[in-house]
Computed example of a mutant assay.
Amino acid sequence: MIALRGGYVYLKPMLDKDEYKPSIVVEESFYKADSLRKSCQSFFACMNPSLVVSDLALDYPVISQDSSILLSEITVTGKKGRIFRDKMMGRLDSLAQMEVGGAWVCNCQKNTPHLNDYEPGFTHHPVGSPNSSYSGKRMKPQKGVKYELIRYEPKGRNGSWIVTKIKYHTWQGYDYTEEELLRMNNLWRVKGYYGTREFYQPDELDMQSPLPDARNVLLWKPDIITDEKGEAEVEFFCSDINTSFMGVIEGTDGLGNLGTSQCEFRVLKP
Protein backbone atom coordinates (compact mmCIF):
# COMPACT_ATOMS: atom_id res chain seq x y z
CA MET A 1 0.00 0.00 0.00
CA ILE A 2 2.90 2.37 0.67
CA ALA A 3 4.07 2.05 -2.94
CA LEU A 4 0.66 3.32 -4.13
CA ARG A 5 0.67 6.55 -2.11
CA GLY A 6 -0.25 9.53 -4.24
CA GLY A 7 -1.17 7.36 -7.25
CA TYR A 8 -4.06 5.24 -8.47
CA VAL A 9 -5.14 1.62 -8.35
CA TYR A 10 -6.40 0.43 -11.75
CA LEU A 11 -9.13 -2.20 -11.91
CA LYS A 12 -10.06 -4.33 -14.93
CA PRO A 13 -12.74 -7.05 -14.89
CA MET A 14 -11.48 -10.24 -16.54
CA LEU A 15 -13.90 -12.90 -17.81
CA ASP A 16 -13.46 -15.75 -20.29
CA LYS A 17 -16.76 -15.37 -22.09
CA ASP A 18 -17.15 -12.48 -24.51
CA GLU A 19 -20.91 -12.18 -24.03
CA TYR A 20 -20.41 -10.78 -20.54
CA LYS A 21 -19.54 -7.10 -20.34
CA PRO A 22 -19.01 -6.42 -16.65
CA SER A 23 -18.50 -2.99 -15.17
CA ILE A 24 -17.23 -1.77 -11.82
CA VAL A 25 -18.99 0.83 -9.67
CA VAL A 26 -16.55 2.84 -7.57
CA GLU A 27 -17.95 4.93 -4.74
CA GLU A 28 -15.70 7.84 -3.80
CA SER A 29 -16.14 8.48 -0.09
CA PHE A 30 -14.74 12.02 -0.10
CA TYR A 31 -16.55 13.58 -3.06
CA LYS A 32 -18.93 15.43 -0.73
CA ALA A 33 -16.09 16.86 1.33
CA ASP A 34 -14.23 17.94 -1.81
CA SER A 35 -17.31 19.66 -3.21
CA LEU A 36 -17.88 21.59 0.02
CA ARG A 37 -14.24 22.59 0.37
CA LYS A 38 -14.38 24.43 -2.96
CA SER A 39 -16.86 26.89 -1.46
CA CYS A 40 -15.01 27.29 1.85
CA GLN A 41 -13.10 30.44 2.62
CA SER A 42 -9.33 30.14 2.93
CA PHE A 43 -7.65 31.62 5.99
CA PHE A 44 -4.13 32.95 6.24
CA ALA A 45 -2.28 34.27 9.27
CA CYS A 46 -2.33 38.06 9.56
CA MET A 47 1.02 39.79 9.28
CA ASN A 48 2.22 42.26 11.86
CA PRO A 49 1.51 45.79 10.51
CA SER A 50 5.04 46.80 11.52
CA LEU A 51 6.39 44.34 8.91
CA VAL A 52 4.41 45.78 5.98
CA VAL A 53 6.68 47.44 3.42
CA SER A 54 5.58 50.70 1.86
CA ASP A 55 5.46 51.33 -1.87
CA LEU A 56 8.70 53.30 -1.84
CA ALA A 57 11.40 52.49 -4.36
CA LEU A 58 13.80 50.28 -2.41
CA ASP A 59 17.03 48.52 -3.24
CA TYR A 60 16.61 44.79 -2.75
CA PRO A 61 17.12 42.64 -0.85
CA VAL A 62 15.18 44.11 2.04
CA ILE A 63 15.32 42.24 5.35
CA SER A 64 12.41 42.55 7.76
CA GLN A 65 12.55 42.46 11.55
CA ASP A 66 12.23 38.68 11.62
CA SER A 67 15.22 38.29 9.21
CA SER A 68 12.97 37.33 6.28
CA ILE A 69 14.15 38.53 2.86
CA LEU A 70 11.42 40.43 1.05
CA LEU A 71 11.42 39.91 -2.71
CA SER A 72 9.99 42.12 -5.40
CA GLU A 73 6.77 41.18 -7.17
CA ILE A 74 7.09 38.65 -9.99
CA THR A 75 4.72 37.60 -12.77
CA VAL A 76 4.48 33.91 -13.61
CA THR A 77 3.52 33.03 -17.17
CA GLY A 78 3.21 29.68 -18.85
CA LYS A 79 2.37 27.95 -22.08
CA LYS A 80 -0.31 25.32 -22.33
CA GLY A 81 1.06 21.90 -23.21
CA ARG A 82 -0.23 18.38 -23.37
CA ILE A 83 -1.76 17.12 -20.18
CA PHE A 84 0.61 15.34 -17.80
CA ARG A 85 -0.28 11.69 -17.30
CA ASP A 86 1.04 9.11 -14.89
CA LYS A 87 2.92 6.07 -16.19
CA MET A 88 -0.21 3.97 -16.70
CA MET A 89 -2.27 6.67 -18.41
CA GLY A 90 0.71 7.65 -20.57
CA ARG A 91 0.98 4.05 -21.80
CA LEU A 92 -2.74 3.94 -22.57
CA ASP A 93 -2.45 7.21 -24.46
CA SER A 94 0.48 5.89 -26.50
CA LEU A 95 -1.46 2.73 -27.38
CA ALA A 96 -4.48 4.79 -28.41
CA GLN A 97 -2.34 6.90 -30.73
CA MET A 98 -1.13 3.70 -32.44
CA GLU A 99 -4.63 2.40 -33.13
CA VAL A 100 -5.28 1.64 -36.80
CA GLY A 101 -8.07 3.72 -38.35
CA GLY A 102 -9.26 7.25 -37.86
CA ALA A 103 -7.32 10.04 -39.53
CA TRP A 104 -5.07 9.08 -42.46
CA VAL A 105 -2.84 10.79 -44.99
CA CYS A 106 -2.91 10.26 -48.76
CA ASN A 107 0.11 10.67 -51.03
CA CYS A 108 -1.69 12.92 -53.53
CA GLN A 109 0.37 15.95 -52.61
CA LYS A 110 4.01 16.13 -51.57
CA ASN A 111 4.48 19.67 -50.23
CA THR A 112 1.56 19.81 -47.81
CA PRO A 113 -0.08 16.36 -47.59
CA HIS A 114 -3.83 16.03 -47.14
CA LEU A 115 -5.18 14.88 -43.78
CA ASN A 116 -8.36 12.86 -44.28
CA ASP A 117 -11.21 11.98 -41.92
CA TYR A 118 -9.80 13.96 -39.00
CA GLU A 119 -12.72 16.39 -38.91
CA PRO A 120 -16.18 15.61 -40.34
CA GLY A 121 -16.49 16.72 -43.95
CA PHE A 122 -12.79 17.36 -44.50
CA THR A 123 -11.29 14.80 -46.86
CA HIS A 124 -9.52 14.82 -50.20
CA HIS A 125 -11.58 11.80 -51.29
CA PRO A 126 -15.23 12.42 -50.32
CA VAL A 127 -17.75 9.69 -51.04
CA GLY A 128 -19.67 10.35 -54.25
CA SER A 129 -17.12 12.69 -55.78
CA PRO A 130 -15.09 11.91 -58.92
CA ASN A 131 -12.03 11.69 -56.69
CA SER A 132 -13.60 9.29 -54.18
CA SER A 133 -11.63 6.23 -55.28
CA TYR A 134 -8.13 6.04 -53.79
CA SER A 135 -5.83 3.12 -54.44
CA GLY A 136 -2.70 4.51 -52.84
CA LYS A 137 -1.26 3.82 -49.41
CA ARG A 138 -3.06 5.22 -46.37
CA MET A 139 -0.32 6.61 -44.17
CA LYS A 140 -0.53 7.49 -40.51
CA PRO A 141 -0.10 11.18 -39.60
CA GLN A 142 3.18 12.10 -37.96
CA LYS A 143 3.50 14.34 -34.93
CA GLY A 144 4.75 17.85 -35.66
CA VAL A 145 3.93 17.65 -39.40
CA LYS A 146 1.66 20.28 -40.96
CA TYR A 147 -1.24 18.89 -43.02
CA GLU A 148 -3.88 20.40 -45.28
CA LEU A 149 -7.55 19.79 -44.55
CA ILE A 150 -9.80 20.30 -47.56
CA ARG A 151 -13.57 20.13 -47.97
CA TYR A 152 -15.37 19.45 -51.25
CA GLU A 153 -19.08 19.94 -51.86
CA PRO A 154 -21.31 19.39 -54.94
CA LYS A 155 -22.15 23.07 -55.38
CA GLY A 156 -20.61 23.82 -58.73
CA ARG A 157 -22.24 24.09 -62.14
CA ASN A 158 -24.22 20.98 -63.06
CA GLY A 159 -23.55 19.53 -59.61
CA SER A 160 -19.76 19.47 -59.97
CA TRP A 161 -17.70 19.19 -56.80
CA ILE A 162 -15.77 22.31 -55.79
CA VAL A 163 -13.48 23.26 -52.90
CA THR A 164 -15.44 25.17 -50.26
CA LYS A 165 -12.86 25.41 -47.47
CA ILE A 166 -9.17 24.79 -46.84
CA LYS A 167 -7.38 24.93 -43.49
CA TYR A 168 -4.20 23.60 -41.97
CA HIS A 169 -3.43 21.54 -38.90
CA THR A 170 -0.17 20.49 -37.25
CA TRP A 171 -0.69 16.94 -36.05
CA GLN A 172 -0.12 16.34 -32.34
CA GLY A 173 -2.17 13.18 -32.02
CA TYR A 174 -5.64 12.69 -30.65
CA ASP A 175 -6.35 14.54 -27.43
CA TYR A 176 -8.05 11.84 -25.38
CA THR A 177 -9.28 12.63 -21.89
CA GLU A 178 -8.41 10.25 -19.08
CA GLU A 179 -12.06 9.18 -18.85
CA GLU A 180 -12.02 8.28 -22.55
CA LEU A 181 -8.81 6.27 -22.21
CA LEU A 182 -10.23 4.32 -19.26
CA ARG A 183 -13.46 3.59 -21.12
CA MET A 184 -11.62 2.51 -24.28
CA ASN A 185 -9.63 -0.03 -22.24
CA ASN A 186 -12.47 -1.14 -19.94
CA LEU A 187 -10.62 0.15 -16.89
CA TRP A 188 -11.66 1.80 -13.64
CA ARG A 189 -9.41 3.43 -11.08
CA VAL A 190 -9.48 4.54 -7.47
CA LYS A 191 -7.05 6.66 -5.53
CA GLY A 192 -4.31 4.75 -3.79
CA TYR A 193 -3.74 4.71 -0.06
CA TYR A 194 -2.22 7.89 1.34
CA GLY A 195 -1.06 8.02 4.93
CA THR A 196 -1.16 11.24 6.92
CA ARG A 197 1.62 13.71 6.24
CA GLU A 198 3.73 14.87 9.17
CA PHE A 199 3.67 18.65 9.59
CA TYR A 200 6.80 20.24 11.05
CA GLN A 201 6.48 20.93 14.75
CA PRO A 202 9.40 22.45 16.68
CA ASP A 203 10.41 20.77 19.93
CA GLU A 204 11.65 22.41 23.13
CA LEU A 205 15.23 22.39 21.85
CA ASP A 206 14.20 24.19 18.66
CA MET A 207 12.37 26.83 20.69
CA GLN A 208 15.58 27.69 22.54
CA SER A 209 17.32 28.67 19.30
CA PRO A 210 18.15 32.41 18.95
CA LEU A 211 17.05 32.37 15.30
CA PRO A 212 13.69 34.05 14.67
CA ASP A 213 10.70 31.77 14.20
CA ALA A 214 8.62 33.15 11.30
CA ARG A 215 6.06 30.34 11.00
CA ASN A 216 2.63 31.68 10.03
CA VAL A 217 1.03 28.21 10.20
CA LEU A 218 1.33 26.92 13.74
CA LEU A 219 -0.41 23.55 13.49
CA TRP A 220 -1.84 21.23 10.86
CA LYS A 221 -2.90 17.85 12.20
CA PRO A 222 -5.18 15.73 9.99
CA ASP A 223 -5.32 12.61 12.17
CA ILE A 224 -6.96 13.77 15.40
CA ILE A 225 -9.30 11.19 16.96
CA THR A 226 -11.83 12.40 19.52
CA ASP A 227 -12.95 10.46 22.58
CA GLU A 228 -16.46 9.18 23.29
CA LYS A 229 -17.48 12.73 24.26
CA GLY A 230 -16.26 14.16 20.97
CA GLU A 231 -13.33 15.94 22.63
CA ALA A 232 -9.63 16.01 21.84
CA GLU A 233 -6.63 18.10 22.93
CA VAL A 234 -3.67 19.30 20.86
CA GLU A 235 -0.53 21.13 21.92
CA PHE A 236 1.74 23.33 19.82
CA PHE A 237 4.35 26.08 20.12
CA CYS A 238 3.60 29.58 18.84
CA SER A 239 6.02 31.42 16.55
CA ASP A 240 7.59 34.86 16.91
CA ILE A 241 4.82 36.50 14.89
CA ASN A 242 2.78 38.55 17.34
CA THR A 243 -0.66 38.82 15.80
CA SER A 244 -4.09 37.19 15.68
CA PHE A 245 -4.38 33.63 14.38
CA MET A 246 -7.41 31.82 13.04
CA GLY A 247 -8.11 28.20 13.87
CA VAL A 248 -10.23 26.09 11.53
CA ILE A 249 -11.44 22.69 12.74
CA GLU A 250 -12.96 20.21 10.29
CA GLY A 251 -14.02 16.64 10.88
CA THR A 252 -16.24 13.75 9.94
CA ASP A 253 -17.82 10.83 11.73
CA GLY A 254 -18.05 7.22 10.69
CA LEU A 255 -21.28 7.89 8.76
CA GLY A 256 -19.84 10.55 6.47
CA ASN A 257 -21.40 13.52 8.27
CA LEU A 258 -19.25 16.64 8.14
CA GLY A 259 -18.59 19.28 10.77
CA THR A 260 -16.58 22.48 10.97
CA SER A 261 -15.89 25.24 13.45
CA GLN A 262 -13.57 28.23 13.85
CA CYS A 263 -11.77 29.97 16.65
CA GLU A 264 -9.46 32.94 17.02
CA PHE A 265 -6.61 33.67 19.40
CA ARG A 266 -3.89 36.31 19.68
CA VAL A 267 -0.18 35.83 20.30
CA LEU A 268 1.46 38.61 22.36
CA LYS A 269 5.04 39.25 23.33
CA PRO A 270 5.81 38.25 26.93
Score class of each variant (00 low, 15 high):
residue 17 K to L: 11
residue 17 K to R: 11
residue 17 K to N: 15
residue 18 D to K: 09
residue 19 E to R: 12
residue 19 E to P: 00
residue 20 Y to M: 14
residue 21 K to P: 00
residue 21 K to T: 13
residue 22 P to Y: 04
residue 22 P to D: 05
residue 22 P to L: 07
residue 23 S to R: 05
residue 23 S to N: 05
residue 24 I to G: 05
residue 24 I to R: 04
residue 26 V to N: 06
residue 26 V to T: 06
residue 28 E to H: 10
residue 28 E to N: 09
residue 28 E to T: 02
residue 28 E to M: 00
residue 31 Y to G: 04
residue 31 Y to R: 14
residue 32 K to Y: 10
residue 32 K to R: 11
residue 33 A to N: 14
residue 33 A to G: 10
residue 33 A to M: 07
residue 34 D to F: 09
residue 34 D to Q: 05
residue 35 S to A: 10
residue 38 K to W: 04
residue 39 S to R: 10
residue 39 S to K: 10
residue 40 C to G: 09
residue 41 Q to V: 02
residue 41 Q to E: 09
residue 42 S to K: 13
residue 42 S to M: 06
residue 43 F to H: 12
residue 43 F to A: 09
residue 43 F to W: 12
residue 44 F to A: 11
residue 44 F to W: 13
residue 45 A to G: 15
residue 45 A to T: 08
residue 49 P to I: 02
residue 49 P to K: 02
residue 49 P to A: 01
residue 50 S to E: 05
residue 50 S to Q: 14
residue 50 S to P: 00
residue 52 V to G: 03
residue 52 V to H: 10
residue 54 S to H: 07
residue 54 S to V: 12
residue 55 D to V: 09
residue 55 D to K: 10
residue 55 D to M: 08
residue 55 D to I: 03
residue 57 A to T: 07
residue 58 L to V: 14
residue 58 L to K: 09
residue 58 L to E: 13
residue 58 L to F: 08
residue 62 V to I: 11
residue 63 I to F: 04
residue 64 S to A: 13
residue 64 S to N: 15
residue 64 S to W: 03
residue 65 Q to K: 13
residue 66 D to G: 04
residue 66 D to H: 09
residue 67 S to H: 13
residue 68 S to P: 02
residue 68 S to C: 14
residue 69 I to E: 07
residue 70 L to G: 00
residue 70 L to R: 05
residue 71 L to E: 14
residue 71 L to F: 06
residue 71 L to T: 04
residue 72 S to E: 12
residue 72 S to H: 11
residue 73 E to R: 13
residue 73 E to T: 05
residue 75 T to D: 11
residue 76 V to C: 15
residue 76 V to T: 15
residue 76 V to A: 15
residue 77 T to W: 01
residue 77 T to C: 07
residue 78 G to E: 01
residue 78 G to D: 02
residue 78 G to K: 05
residue 79 K to R: 09
residue 79 K to W: 08
residue 81 G to V: 11
residue 81 G to W: 00
residue 83 I to L: 08
residue 84 F to Q: 09
residue 84 F to K: 07
residue 84 F to C: 08
residue 85 R to A: 03
residue 87 K to C: 03
residue 87 K to Q: 08
residue 89 M to P: 01
residue 90 G to S: 10
residue 90 G to F: 02
residue 91 R to W: 10
residue 91 R to Q: 14
residue 91 R to T: 07
residue 92 L to T: 03
residue 92 L to H: 02
residue 92 L to W: 01
residue 93 D to H: 14
residue 93 D to T: 01
residue 94 S to H: 12
residue 94 S to N: 10
residue 94 S to F: 13
residue 95 L to V: 06
residue 95 L to T: 03
residue 95 L to D: 09
residue 96 A to T: 01
residue 97 Q to E: 13
residue 98 M to N: 14
residue 99 E to W: 02
residue 100 V to T: 06
residue 101 G to D: 11
residue 101 G to T: 00
residue 101 G to W: 04
residue 101 G to Q: 06
residue 102 G to D: 03
residue 103 A to G: 05
